[in-house]
Amino acid sequence: MRGRVLIIAGSDSGGGAGIQADIKAVTALGGFAATAITALTAQNTEGVHGVLPIPTAFIRQQMDVVLRDIGADALKTGMLHDSATIAAVCDGIAAEAPGIPLVADPVMVAKGGHPLLQPDAVETLKRRLVPLASLITPNLPEAEVLTGLRIKTEAEMEAAMPALLGLGARAVLLKGGHLEGPRLVDLLGTPEGILRFEDARIETRHTHGTGCTLASAIAVGLAQGMPLEEAVARARRYVRAAILAAPGYGRGHGPLDHAVTFDPERLG
Rank of each mutant, 00 (worst) to 15 (best):
L146F: 00
V66M: 11
T124G: 02
T56N: 14
P264W: 14
R128V: 00
G31T: 12
Y249A: 12
D64I: 09
A217T: 09
G148T: 09
P106K: 08
H258V: 10
M226E: 12
T137K: 02
R266L: 13
E154K: 02
G10F: 07
A200K: 03
R150G: 04
M108I: 15
T204G: 01
E158W: 00
L188W: 05
L228T: 12
G15S: 06
G78P: 11
R240Q: 15
A163L: 03
V103I: 05
A21T: 10
G181Q: 06
G168M: 12
A241N: 12
A42H: 07
A9D: 10
E96C: 14
G3I: 00
G99I: 01
R237N: 04
A17Y: 15
G14L: 00
L117W: 00
I59D: 04
D64C: 09
E230A: 11
T213E: 01
V107R: 11
E203Y: 01
R127C: 03
M161F: 09
G15T: 06
T35S: 15
A133V: 06
P101E: 00
L164W: 04
A133T: 04
P191A: 01
Q224D: 05
A110C: 10
I59S: 05
A242V: 11
L129F: 06
T124D: 09
R236D: 01
L29V: 00
D82P: 06
I100P: 06
M1S: 10
A33M: 03
A28S: 15
I7K: 05
T204P: 03
D82H: 09
Q61D: 15
I37V: 15
I93Q: 14
A39W: 05
G211Y: 14
A241K: 09
A259K: 12
P247I: 08
E198K: 15
E198N: 13
A242P: 13
T41M: 12
P138T: 03
A84S: 14
H49W: 11
S216F: 02
A39K: 07
G250L: 04
G209H: 05
P115C: 08
H81L: 15
T147N: 11
P98T: 14
G18P: 14
T261D: 05
H258D: 12
D12N: 02
L116Q: 12
Q20S: 05
D120T: 06
P138E: 13
G99A: 00
A233R: 15
H206M: 04
A217E: 07
G209Y: 08
A245V: 11
G92S: 02
V103D: 04
I37P: 00
A21I: 13
